[in-house]
């Protein structure tokens, strides 16, 4: 994999204050971007540095931290064989961020998954519906404050005596 250590400075030169920090972990470069700049940063990396593939988009719930969530973008350049991670912190009070779908089409289903599992809204997403859970499901199960085994059955279930489903 090509060296990615120049990207934090490249991004800082372009976006200044909006680049909050950067670090290296597991031989990968991570750049933390303010959430209002995430889409311009993505477009800049795609157009000028050949990151033609959004390999993954996911979310981390830190529960106690402020801001509580990180949206993580896993970018890859097929031509340069370069991988770069950009992250945007999102607070729980306003769980929303601009949709990356105008830049990479593959963001569509990833963002639906993050909405389904973590309840972050992606502003400008063309079709923000649940993708894994059923429509009747209440809440967002991968949030750390959602009880891990809180089930929401769609049809009545015979429970063994003494068993219960926490509601």
């Amino acid at each position: 994999m090509t060296d990615t250590s120049a990207f934090p400075d490249l991004l800082k030169a372009r976006f200044g204050e909006a680049i909050e920090s950067s670090y290296v972990d597991a031989a990968c470069t991570f750049v933390v971007v303010r959430r209002d700049t995430i889409v311009p940063a993505g477009r800049f990396l795609r157009d000028e540095h050949g990151f033609d593939l959004l390999a993954d988009l996911t979310c981390i719930d830190w529960l106690e931290r402020v801001p509580r969530f990180d949206v993580v973008y896993n970018l890859y350049s097929i031509a340069n064989r370069t991988r770069l991670f950009i992250k945007a912190p999102v607070p729980v009070e306003d769980p929303a961020i601009d949709s990356m779908t105008p830049v990479w089409k593959s963001a569509n289903w990833f963002e639906r998954e993050v909405w389904d599992m973590y309840g972050l809204r992606f502003t400008g997403h063309p079709d923000l519906r649940r993708i894994l859970m059923y429509d009747e499901f209440q809440g967002h199960p991968l949030r750390k404050d959602y009880a891990i085994n809180e089930r929401q059955p769609l049809i009545p279930e015979n429970l063994p005596p003494g068993d219960r489903i926490p509601v």
Partner: peptide, 13 residues
């Protein structure tokens, strides 16, 4: 899979 998504045995259904 004692989690939010899995039926805890089909004999419940």
């Amino acid at each position: 899979y004692d989690n939010y998504a899995t039926v805890q045995g089909i004999d419940r259904i």
